[in-house]
Design a protein around this nucleic acid. Structure first.
Lengths: 157, 157
DNA sequence: CTCTCTGCAAATTCTTTGCACCTAG
DNA sequence: CTAGGTGCAAAGAATTTGCAGAGAG
């Protein structure tokens, strides 16, 4: 069960490291927000994160969550995503750097991650054909589960 | 060069048709905005459209452009897109219904459309594997041209 | 102690809406 | 004529920011 590097293993430790290296501070709020974020399934919006965080400390402000997520993004521990629902959602970036795409269910709101090597390869080809070098990419499949295989469908229904 | 149906050929006629069928009105502003939109390269934001439109009629308001683009979307002549730059961009939907994806250059802002049958096929497979039916999908390649092949790089540089 | 953070509220940015006048059909 | 449209300005919604007091190092 143990990984090779212990720093990459514990996001909290990585944050603490980054923060001190930059002369910033590791506050109670940052610790709490990071913990909630990394413990989550990912793809939470700032509002949703705040809701979770406030179960632990009702005083935390929305602004602090916004600022902390920006910090986590800067230090490479979180990635912002935008699925067409109007707000930015974050996902942990600690998963072995392996790129993945998303399948978003329009019925139940569920977001599934997947990886497909063929797609990755074809993307490179296409960019090359047009004389470009791929920096980043994203693919989103919007689908319908018809509720058949969604035991745990989230709130937005 | 001629298409099968003449209505599908001229977006302005299609809009006129839709508008009258719905008991709506074909106003000077709607005609102008639609003309500018369909004459454009696509991927314009509402602000950018307004700028173009005002070269012809400086009185047109931003609200009307928003409302008209929503109307064009409803009648299937335009599709809203969101590339991470913060605003909604529209593209004409009159291109033979053929789906396409986007390659967005982070250097020059150019947006190139492409279509790849393998990708379309793989997407279907993936959704099926997870027990979903694809409703829609999008793939965006963010790339760098290093300015080598971008003779006509847009304003945002 | 000092310099960063936090919470709050005000400010921004994109988009939508209410309303009085205007206009297409 | 009459319903729907337009322009304007105000309202909304998500996110950012200024500031005074709080707290980490």
């Amino acid at each position: 069960m143990q990984k090779t590097t212990e720093s990459a293993q514990d996001p909290r430790a990585r944050l603490r490291e980054y923060v001190s290296r930059q002369g910033l501070k590791f506050t109670r709020q940052r610790e709490l927000i990071a913990d909630v974020f990394f413990r989550s399934e990912g793809h939470l919006s700032v509002e949703e994160l705040l809701e979770e965080v406030r179960k632990d400390d009702a005083q935390v402000s929305l602004a602090t969550v916004y600022r902390t997520m920006k910090l986590l993004t800067e230090c490479g521990l979180a990635n912002p995503r935008q699925f067409g629902d109007g707000f930015t959602r974050y996902e942990p970036a600690d998963k072995d750097d392996e790129h993945h795409d998303h399948l978003i269910c329009r019925d139940c709101g569920k977001i599934i991650e997947f990886y497909n090597a063929d797609i990755e390869r074809i993307q490179e080809q296409i960019a090359k054909q047009h004389g470009f070098a791929v920096i980043d990419h994203k693919m989103e499949l919007y689908a319908s589960c018809s509720r058949t295989n969604c035991p745990d469908r989230p709130k937005r229904s």
